[in-house]
């Protein structure tokens, strides 16, 4: 780590700590019914999540998110490769894909409830369905823009079928897959929380909603903070994985200089 990055890191930590202290001091006074002091929030956070209600609410949420997002990536890559490999399919499917991805995500909530009830299946479905489109579009573009020389070299060395998919196509579009995943990840968290608030018997979203209804404001804050940390952590994790997997891309495009 060089000097400049170290300074940046210190600046980041300093600014974050400063803002937290400001919030702490501000909330120490009486700010009305929706607010509570930072120590109370943190206390509620510890009581709820370490690890009293972890199994009851966090685990189901993570399972739904994990299943839904994995399904979205798998379906998104498969569909994207299909759409990207043929001009005809691309042209034919373009209107329908544009329509599906333009649907405001939550407008599908009622439909998903009718189809799958209020259980895990509904959350997995809506996350997978909505989150796959950014990946489909990115992957399709990526496949269509693959370098002709690279494909010719794979073809002339008779790298075909599954080998071609596994060792040439998928690695080549990996940066596009990640670009799609970055967009869908925040959508996935949003859909998870929304569905859990609207129709669920557990989960972090349900917990936040329920706490608000029962006037346990510190618990509500505990849930909000956890959701924030969850989103932050997932994004960070995705970035770390991307940097590892797509190292060649960063180098080729010279983005790391």
């Amino acid at each position: 780590m060089n000097g400049r990055r170290l300074r940046h890191l210190w600046l980041e930590i300093g600014v974050t700590a400063g803002l937290l202290t400001a919030a702490w001091l501000y909330l120490a006074g009486d700010r009305g019914y929706a607010w509570t002091s930072v120590p109370t929030m943190l206390g509620a956070f510890r009581d709820a999540w370490l690890f009293d209600k972890f199994g009851e609410h966090v685990v189901p949420s993570l399972v739904r998110l994990g299943l839904g997002f994995t399904l979205a990536v798998a379906a998104g890559v498969a569909l994207g490769v299909l759409v990207g490999s043929s001009r005809t399919i691309r042209l034919l499917s373009q209107p329908i894909i544009s329509f599906l991805r333009s649907l405001p995500a939550v407008s599908l909530l009622p439909l998903s409830l009718v189809l799958f009830g209020i259980g895990t299946a509904q959350k997995v479905f809506i996350i997978a369905f909505v989150c796959c489109w950014p990946i489909v579009l990115n992957v399709a573009d990526g496949i269509a823009e693959l370098d002709a020389t690279m494909l010719a070299s794979a073809r002339s060395y008779r790298v075909r079928g599954l080998d071609r998919l596994r060792w040439v196509l998928i690695p080549a579009i990996m940066p596009r897959i990640f670009a799609g995943m970055r967009i869908s990840l925040s959508m996935a968290v949003l859909l998870l929380v929304t569905s859990e608030m609207v129709a669920s018997a557990n989960g972090i979203g349900f917990f936040v909603w329920q706490s608000q209804l029962t006037f346990s404001i510190p618990d509500m804050w505990a849930g909000i903070i956890l959701l924030g940390l969850l989103g932050y952590g997932l994004n960070l994790g995705l970035q770390v994985v991307e940097r590892r997997v797509c190292r060649w891309h960063t180098h080729l495009t010279g983005r790391d200089e």
Partner: peptide, 26 residues
């Protein structure tokens, strides 16, 4: 076998030198 004029783009950047040479041999 072909050695392409545009050699840089004919290699797979996600594979090492060894990987690039082994892939056609699979």
């Amino acid at each position: 076998a072909v050695v392409f004029q545009d050699y840089a783009r004919s290699l797979f950047p996600w594979l090492t030198v060894r990987g690039n040479i082994l892939l056609p041999l699979r």
